[in-house]
């Protein structure tokens, strides 16, 4: 039962996209009014937008705008590595102490190196290598706080966003061209209904009079 629910949730977006797309297609196929057909085309187009954005979604991700300090990630890692190498010989408990100092900011002031990298968040290597796991936690140190790193953020896929962003603006511009053609058709024919347009074209081209056209139809 749970599997079925998961399956449905993971594909619901696709199904709605298909329903919307088919709705737009149905409007284009079945309606004779040109303006309504254009609106149907718009519906079709928007369903493709929703499809692209759904594909680019990543669960647990955030908007693709870099969070504060992400650009300094490499500097932070470098500082942490240097720091680890310096204190590595002096034993694990010292390292843990230094990291605690780093996490707590400059308030400790015991280790110049630790307070030097205080404003960045080291700790990626703290989790990765078991030797760095703090053996005896100094009182008041929250380990969970230390392990939250800046580099962990997951961003949604920016590429579909870029493609769709430009497509929306281009879409409205091309819709305007379609509407302009509709306006000219209205001015030339006096109607924008396909059936009437066809009848008038027949009358103009084959010289059928009103009565003959009606008789033929």
């Amino acid at each position: 039962m749970v599997d079925v629910l998961d399956f449905v949730i993971a594909r619901y977006n696709y199904w709605i996209v298909i329903v919307l797309m088919m709705t737009g297609l149905y409007i284009v196929f079945s309606r004779g009014n040109l303006v309504k057909s254009l609106i149907g085309l718009n519906l079709f187009q928007t369903s493709v937008f929703i499809f692209y954005i759904s594909i680019g979604r990543i669960t647990g991700g955030t908007a693709p705008i870099l969070l504060e300090g992400h650009g300094d990630e490499h500097d932070a890692e470098g500082a942490a590595d240097l720091h680890g190498a310096t204190v590595g010989g002096e034993g694990a408990s010292h390292a843990a102490d230094a990291h605690a100092g780093a996490a707590h900011g400059a308030e400790a002031g015991l280790h110049p190196l630790g307070s030097g990298s205080a404003d960045v968040a080291p700790g990626a290597d703290l989790l990765a290598s078991p030797s760095h796991v703090p053996v005896g936690d100094p009182p008041g140190v929250d380990v969970v706080e230390i392990t939250r790193t800046v580099g962990d953020t997951i961003y949604s896929n920016p590429l579909p966003h870029v493609l769709i962003l430009t497509a929306i603006v281009v879409g409205v511009a091309t819709t305007a061209v379609g509407l302009a053609i509709c306006v000219r058709i209205k001015e030339a024919y006096g109607t924008v209904e396909e059936d009437a347009l066809e009848a008038m074209d027949n009358a103009a081209e084959y010289g059928l009079t009103e009565g003959q056209a009606e008789g033929a139809a």
Binding site: V169, V172, A173, A176, L179, A180, V183, E187, G190
Partner: peptide
């Protein structure tokens, strides 16, 4: 480009009504 085009298109559609009608 986008601002000018959008406003231009609006001018064209909105200004059409004032022209001689059918």
């Amino acid at each position: 480009a986008v601002a000018s085009t959008m406003l231009q298109i609006f001018y064209l559609f909105a200004g059409r009504e004032a022209e001689p009608s059918d």
